[in-house]
Amino acid sequence: MTGRWLFAFDFDYTIVDEDSDYYVFQQLGPEQQRKMRELYATGAYTWTDLVDMLLGELHSNGVTEAQLRALLPSIPFNPAMHTALELASAQGHEIVVISDANTVYIDEIAVAKGFRHTIQSIITNKGEFDETGRLRITRHTTHPPHGCPRCAANLCKGKELLEYVAARGPFDRIVYLGDGKNDFCPGTKLAPSDLVLARRGRALEQMLLDPQHRAEVAAAVEFWDTSDDVLGAFTRLLGVSAEQS
């Protein structure tokens, strides 16, 4: 028996193999995708506010709610991740998604890919279609500010992880999966018995390979390339086979 574990997942480039915000603009508004890169690099916008603004441009250009909803299920996704989620869920462990995407994207994709039932909670920015069919995205954190110097104003994943554990724990072990800079903060909140699974070739791996940053993370760290690696790690950690999912 492994006890009761918490599997905390990022979403973009972790559960799915693309950034969902970029994917929508790439497919439905390449001009907005270009503007996203340029404007975000100026530092004048939070990611969430920028996505909301550019979704407004998509809507003005005639992109409908139906088109957006129809696109989301096509995002690249490795079925091995579905099996990994099912495996952890079948063993009675808890799964939470903590993401800088939004509720519409995550819910639509999770339902379409068949793993929504494995997730106990989704912590992310609010997405909601208004009466005109325009998707609005609002910050998860608005007031009071979360106060973390590592994280963007709209979401501190470390704070959210600690609050989730306080409300839903205790857990015998936490396994955190992510890829980006904003996945470093929750890594610093983990105990030596916990584990960070960081995707190779992404910002989180670079940070964890730096000795100064690595010293801030007490948990064990492993790296992975594809969802097949995640599934392999889950079967090893849980002492079960993929067929038991």
Results as ranks from 00 to 15, higher is better:
residue 97 V to E: 13
residue 199 R to F: 04
residue 230 V to S: 07
residue 12 D to V: 03
residue 111 V to Q: 15
residue 170 P to I: 01
residue 213 H to S: 13
residue 189 K to D: 05
residue 113 K to C: 02
residue 96 V to F: 10
residue 197 L to H: 08
residue 53 M to E: 14
residue 216 E to A: 12
residue 102 N to K: 09
residue 111 V to Y: 10
residue 10 D to M: 08
residue 127 G to V: 00
residue 140 H to M: 15
residue 66 A to F: 07
residue 180 G to V: 13
residue 99 S to T: 07
residue 2 T to L: 08
residue 69 R to G: 06
residue 65 E to A: 08
residue 239 G to F: 09
residue 109 I to Q: 01
residue 197 L to V: 15
residue 193 S to Q: 12
residue 81 M to V: 11
residue 188 T to I: 12
residue 204 L to E: 05
residue 43 G to Q: 08
residue 48 T to S: 13
residue 77 F to M: 00
residue 222 E to D: 14
residue 4 R to P: 00
residue 153 A to F: 08
residue 46 T to G: 15
residue 168 R to N: 13
residue 102 N to H: 07
residue 189 K to H: 11
residue 87 L to C: 11
residue 185 C to K: 01
residue 27 Q to M: 12
residue 209 L to N: 15
residue 240 V to I: 05
residue 196 V to H: 15
residue 11 F to S: 03
residue 114 G to C: 05
residue 153 A to M: 07
residue 222 E to K: 15
residue 159 K to T: 11
residue 122 I to H: 05
residue 59 H to T: 12
residue 219 A to S: 14
residue 50 L to T: 05
residue 134 R to D: 10
residue 101 A to Q: 06
residue 9 F to E: 08
residue 80 A to K: 10
residue 207 M to H: 04
residue 92 G to P: 10
residue 25 F to S: 10
residue 70 A to V: 02
residue 41 A to T: 06
residue 212 Q to N: 11
residue 112 A to H: 09
residue 244 Q to F: 04
residue 175 V to Y: 07
residue 10 D to N: 08
residue 69 R to P: 07
residue 163 E to S: 04
residue 46 T to I: 09
residue 77 F to T: 00
residue 25 F to G: 11
residue 110 A to L: 13
residue 229 D to A: 02
residue 93 H to E: 13
residue 185 C to N: 01
residue 114 G to K: 03
residue 65 E to N: 03
residue 139 R to E: 01
residue 222 E to G: 11
residue 31 E to S: 11
residue 203 A to L: 10
residue 184 F to Q: 03
residue 161 L to R: 03
residue 208 L to H: 03
residue 239 G to M: 08
residue 241 S to F: 08
residue 35 K to P: 12
residue 89 S to F: 12
residue 120 Q to L: 14
residue 16 V to D: 01
residue 119 I to D: 00
residue 16 V to L: 01
residue 123 I to N: 04
residue 159 K to I: 11
residue 60 S to Y: 13
residue 177 L to Q: 10
residue 48 T to D: 03
residue 221 V to T: 10
residue 88 A to P: 12
residue 135 L to Y: 05
residue 191 A to I: 12
residue 190 L to F: 11
residue 182 N to M: 02
residue 76 P to Y: 07
residue 206 Q to R: 11
residue 112 A to R: 13
residue 151 C to I: 04
residue 97 V to R: 09
residue 10 D to H: 07
residue 145 P to G: 05
residue 148 C to N: 00
residue 138 T to Y: 10
residue 241 S to L: 08
residue 156 C to T: 04
residue 230 V to R: 05
residue 149 P to Y: 09
residue 102 N to E: 08
residue 154 N to V: 00
residue 153 A to S: 06
residue 217 V to L: 12
residue 240 V to M: 13
residue 90 A to C: 14
residue 133 G to T: 01
residue 94 E to P: 06
residue 207 M to Y: 10
residue 216 E to Q: 15
residue 152 A to W: 00
residue 130 D to N: 15
residue 82 H to I: 03
residue 97 V to M: 13
residue 102 N to I: 02
residue 232 G to C: 03
residue 81 M to K: 00
residue 183 D to Y: 00
residue 64 T to E: 06
residue 198 A to T: 14
residue 157 K to N: 01
residue 224 W to S: 08
residue 141 T to I: 11
residue 209 L to K: 15
residue 33 Q to F: 15
residue 7 F to Q: 02
residue 72 L to N: 06
residue 237 L to P: 09
residue 181 K to F: 14
residue 234 F to I: 05
residue 175 V to G: 06
residue 223 F to V: 00
residue 217 V to R: 02
residue 227 S to M: 07
residue 176 Y to E: 13
